[in-house]
């Protein structure tokens, strides 16, 4: 028999890093200014937030470092009493707005990311299972999803938040609040993942490579997670990115409504809620800077998601 390929094959495969850089996705990214700028903005915000304890000028939650005299200092102007200057001004308690925002973004990001991870794990598992099993199991799970989609996500999150609070003892409430929030937002968001994964899984499971695995009697769980899952990750990534933006906004909304994170760990939403009461009296910076940060973060993540969706969809290219 004659080999189809006459050329000897290089023994060393190109490295993972090189393949990633050389991939079509990376190329599409490099040539898309929107994607690059959005990524830069998102990365700067995430970087500042994650490293807040080391980067922030002060720790706004350390009462010892606070000086009430600094209250309501406008941005870039020295305080009349202390002579201190704050880039983004100071709030009513004399906390540096920049530091407050960095710490707030940290909380927002943490809640948003954890909620998406939670929604993703839940949605992927349910979607894979429904798509793989088909039949009435699939119908039942998808009807549940349909019913949930009929309600606004924020309402569901509120509902779950409310119910969960009822079960948690008083003394643990503040400690648990952030986790309850994550579960509430995650539960309101899993449907997107489940639907997409289910649809993609139903397509993939009829492909011949899955049949080949079934012929040798591979375990269904292995087929689902090793064969099907890697091939449906594309759309999942898109949804995860867009969901992250939505989750950050959902967290901000809930915190703005006062049902979110406890006041000891203010998030961007909490800051906006606090800030809006000072808007009328002219201290605009207390509202504006947290709001702008939220906008920039959500917008850049969203743009990135949109770009990713287009880049992964060959029909749109």
């Amino acid at each position: 028999m004659t080999p189809e390929s006459k050329t000897p094959v290089p023994s060393k495969p190109p490295g993972r890093l090189y393949r990633a850089w050389d991939s079509d996705l990376a190329y599409a990214f490099r040539t898309s200014p929107v994607a690059v700028v959005a990524t830069l903005v998102a990365l700067v915000i995430i970087f500042c937030a994650v490293l807040a304890p080391w980067l922030a000028p002060m720790n706004p939650y350390n009462p010892a470092g606070l000086n009430l005299m600094n209250g309501f200092t406008p941005p870039m102007e020295p305080n009349a009493f202390t002579g201190e200057t704050f880039v983004m001004g100071a709030d009513n308690q004399g906390r540096d707005m920049l530091s407050t925002i960095m710490y707030g973004t940290r909380t927002s990001l943490f809640v948003g990311a954890m909620a998406v991870v939670f929604a993703m794990v839940l949605g992927i598992s349910i979607g894979l299972f429904a798509g793989w099993r088909g039949g009435w199991v699939d119908s039942a799970l998808m009807r549940v999803a349909d019913v949930q989609l009929a309600f606004p996500a924020i309402l569901i999150a509120l509902l779950i938040f409310g119910i969960a609070r009822g079960f948690i003892p008083d003394n643990l409430r503040d400690q648990m609040a952030i986790w309850v929030l994550i579960v509430a937002i995650g539960l309101s968001d899993w449907v997107q993942f489940a639907r997409v994964v289910r649809g993609a899984a139903m397509v993939e499971k009829n492909k011949e490579y899955v049949q080949a695995a079934r012929v040798i009697g591979a375990h269904p769980a292995k087929i689902m997670f090793r064969h099907i899952l890697p091939n449906v990750m594309g759309p999942v990534l898109v949804i995860a990115t867009i969901s992250l933006a939505l989750a950050i906004i959902a967290e901000a909304t809930l915190s703005f409504l006062g049902v979110g994170v406890p006041p000891t760990q203010p998030s961007l939403g909490t800051l906006i809620r606090i800030g809006q009461s000072f808007l009328i009296s002219g201290e605009w910076w207390i509202l504006l800077f947290p709001a702008l940060t939220l906008l920039a973060l959500a917008l850049s993540v969203n743009l990135l998601g949109d770009w990713l969706r287009d880049a992964l969809n060959p029909r749109l290219r």
Partner: peptide, 28 residues
Amino acid sequence: RRRFQMIFQDPFASLNPRWRVGEIIAEP
């Protein structure tokens, strides 16, 4: 099960695109 196998029609669909050839062949 080990004693029989199947070859499929579409060689573009019958190999998992995310796996290396070595993994694919060694799967059984």
